Simulated assay, not measured.
Amino acid sequence: MKKIIAILLIACFCQLTAAQEKTKTNSENFNSFLKKFNEDKNFQLSRVKFPFAIKTLNDDLEEVSVTMTQKNYKILKLDDKGMEFKQKIILKQKSAVIEQRGIDTGIYADYIFELKDNKWFLKTWVDQST
């Protein structure tokens, strides 16, 4: 009986490991996604779930939460070709953050993405630019 239980546990573990590897293999590459996100307006809109909350600074430089609707959304260009900021991508298994930090400017923003069903989506952003 103990041998049967051990064999079943090993078989379950092997199936779980294989399923996890398959998920990793089928996940969209973030850099490829980001390139298309920056180049194709329709693709970008398809990878944003509206409405969503963002954080930004009000006129008194206090952080406030604002609901972003598709009507108010402006197409983003999240490439690192700007001369007025540095951009860094922090990539994790199911999330990614694009940090933009100004060079002698007030730019300070984080764009947060999440991996859902093996596809990347813009989740929110925090813009503390002054």
Rank of each mutant, 00 (worst) to 15 (best):
F30G: 00
Q44T: 06
S65D: 13
Y108M: 08
D40L: 05
F50D: 04
D110S: 09
T17Q: 10
V64T: 10
K22F: 12
Q93N: 15
A18L: 12
Q44R: 05
T17K: 11
D117A: 10
Q87S: 11
K41S: 12
L78W: 02
P51L: 14
T105Q: 04
F30H: 01
N31I: 12
E84N: 15
A18N: 08
F33A: 00
I90N: 12
K92M: 08
S65H: 08
K92P: 01
T17L: 10
N42S: 15
C12S: 12
N72L: 09
L61G: 13
I75F: 10
T69V: 09
M83Y: 15
L45K: 10
E84G: 14
F33V: 02
D104L: 11
V48E: 00
K24A: 09
K92A: 14
Y111G: 02
V66D: 08
N72P: 00
M83R: 11
F52E: 00
E39C: 07
N29A: 09
T69L: 08
F13Y: 12
K41D: 09
L45Y: 08
K86S: 15
E21C: 06
N31V: 04
K22P: 02
A109D: 02
K94F: 15
E28R: 06
K116T: 07
K81G: 12
A19K: 07
K88T: 14
T105G: 00
T17G: 07
R47I: 04
F50G: 02
I112L: 13
L34Y: 01
K81Y: 14
N38Y: 03
F113S: 04
V97G: 00
F85D: 02
F113Y: 01
A96S: 05
K35I: 08
L91H: 13
V97N: 05
I103N: 05
K88C: 01
Y111I: 00
K116W: 05
E28I: 03
F33S: 01
K22D: 12
K49G: 05
S27C: 08
E39D: 15
D59Y: 14
G106D: 07
E62C: 07
N29Y: 05
F30D: 03
V97R: 01
I98V: 07
I107F: 05
G102Q: 06
E28T: 04
I54A: 04
I75C: 03
A109P: 00
L78H: 02
T23K: 13
I112T: 04
L61W: 15
F113V: 02
T17E: 11
D117N: 15
G102K: 00
K81L: 14
E62S: 11
L115I: 03
A109M: 02
